[in-house]
Nucleic acid binder design. Sequence first.
DNA 1: CCTGGTTGTGTACGGGCGTACACAACCATC
DNA 2: GATGGTTGTGTACGCCCGTACACAACCAGG
Lengths: 182, 182
Amino acid sequence: MARRYDPGRRERIIDAALRVVAREGIAGLSHRTVAAEADVPLGSTTYHFASLDELLVAALRRCNENFARTVRESDCLADPGVPLAGGLTRLLEEWFAGGRGPAELEYELYLAALRRPALRAVAAEWADDLGALLASRTDPATARALVALLDGISLQVLLTGGEFDAAYTREMLGRIVDGAGR
Amino acid sequence: MARRYDPGRRERIIDAALRVVAREGIAGLSHRTVAAEADVPLGSTTYHFASLDELLVAALRRCNENFARTVRESDCLADPGVPLAGGLTRLLEEWFAGGRGPAELEYELYLAALRRPALRAVAAEWADDLGALLASRTDPATARALVALLDGISLQVLLTGGEFDAAYTREMLGRIVDGAGR
DNA sequence: CCTGGTTGTGTACGGGCGTACACAACCATC
DNA sequence: GATGGTTGTGTACGCCCGTACACAACCAGG
């Protein structure tokens, strides 16, 4: 039966799940497709993840970590000399520059929380983490609104197939930020 | 074979599809489930809608119409005496007062456009229609941003399972609106 | 009344799915 | 090196799916 010693198989399954979702969407995710993608036996996926929800939770969490690292490594937000709205706009611009793919993947997992209560906690973490990051440059309510507006603008781009408009984005984020000072 | 004369069967199938999606999500929508819900033979659903995408397009369009009618009938936006931000907040408040159900249904269909290009045009219509409605009270860019922020705030509520916060919403919408005047 | 075309149905096929479970491989203990 | 517990696999079952298609019901023109 060829059982291999394979630590980190769990992680490889999560990676495979992300590739499957990126390619075919959550609708195309099944124990079988992810097993094939990760090149592990079918039983292995059900063994490590009792349900697809569990696998999705792990995948979304991994996504969040990747995004958080990207944000932290980018200096768009760190430098207090750069206006907050401008930094956020640049961040989003870089993100969309990578094409629809990555953005679609992250949002699909994030939005899946709408129908899957198991994902809600992770989705909330994401919003909170980003909010906390921004809160160091403004107040919590404003930070939350910035996250909401970023989500809304990104969705408009992704859902309607439109283009990302940096000037417009900067302007509107600016209105939220500036409103905090009055 | 009992073929009935049944005009409006197409419409009844769309209604049934909305009920199915409301109850079980898009994942639970199939030719069979919708046929059972509409109490028509299986072949009837494939006859009227060649693919599920086609059915989803019809369902989303119907949703849009319902929402547009609700907005038009509500006087939250019509009265120029009411501040725009306040009117929108009240509209959203009434919407959420109906429970998660209706909001979940509309957003699930709307967000499905992320992965289904066939729905993009209808999703774009929705955003444009609402934008056009708001544009009569402000400029187009501001109107678009208001829609984006409304989407973002609604999503935060629905995805994280949180509560709708009217005061916060009014405040942030207000910042977008007021920013237009400077 | 027949007849040819259109509209709508029932059924059956092949395929992918989640899940269960017997059992192989491994490891620690003696 | 036997043994008992744990970890991981292969396989098979039953279910639901989209799709195709023969054919019933209907309708209009002759």
